[in-house]
Design a binder for these strands. Sequence first.
DNA 1: CATGCAGTACGATGAAACTCGTACAAGCGA
DNA 2: TCGCTTGTACGAGTTTCATCGTACTGCATG
Lengths: 116, 116
Amino acid sequence: MSATEPEGLPEPLPEPAVEELRLETVLGALSDPLRLRIVRKLLLESEAFDHSCGWFGLDRPKSSLTHHFKALREAGITRQRQYGLERRSHVRVTDLDTRFPGLLDLVAAWTPPNKP
Amino acid sequence: MSATEPEGLPEPLPEPAVEELRLETVLGALSDPLRLRIVRKLLLESEAFDHSCGWFGLDRPKSSLTHHFKALREAGITRQRQYGLERRSHVRVTDLDTRFPGLLDLVAAWTPPNKP
DNA sequence: CATGCAGTACGATGAAACTCGTACAAGCGA
DNA sequence: TCGCTTGTACGAGTTTCATCGTACTGCATG
């Protein structure tokens, strides 16, 4: 069905379909500071498509990261695929732009406050 | 300072300044279904400027409504003024469009799922 | 096959936050 | 002045969520 993705890739992990995306859920997922950082980093700094958990350089225990990446995926913001050992993520840009046009532009354009 | 508002109005209740608005906080406030309804109703159906709490026709106890309207105001989404007995709210459109351009358009354009 | 690595699953803990009842303050009108 | 209305303050009960330690799975590589 979802023929927008190229062939030969591992199947995505379970995720909501485009029609199932809920604005409240998406906003709630983005309202966490760490998850907002993750999404912004994916939007701004990923030349390639997917990035594994370690690429983000987040100083948190692994179980915490699992929690947040799962939250992003279950909210429909990211798609995750298994590449051997690693589980790589990317933002579902097309789906989100379809359902909530302007949301990702907003997140990417936003300037986070200075942290000393 | 904030000379964008006409004169002769009651002072707004305490609220964050434009520079203090935080994206995480705003998104978190909008991630509650009832608050999202409130903001959408204000954006879509308010010909006049301000609306009192009862105008929304929300079937919740008063103390719950106070909680949510306060949350919206403290997140910087709405401004509230005291008019005699009533406390009327409107969305801080200019401020939000300045800090997070596209956010309110997004909220207004979004179509909520059918509720049977 | 043994080691090591990426990541999950589970569970406990603590902090928010939603919901709401009750009691109270303040303004308006008869 | 006596209600009636609008909304707050406070507090309790419940739920949800973030955080993280520990144990485990699965895969790759030597």
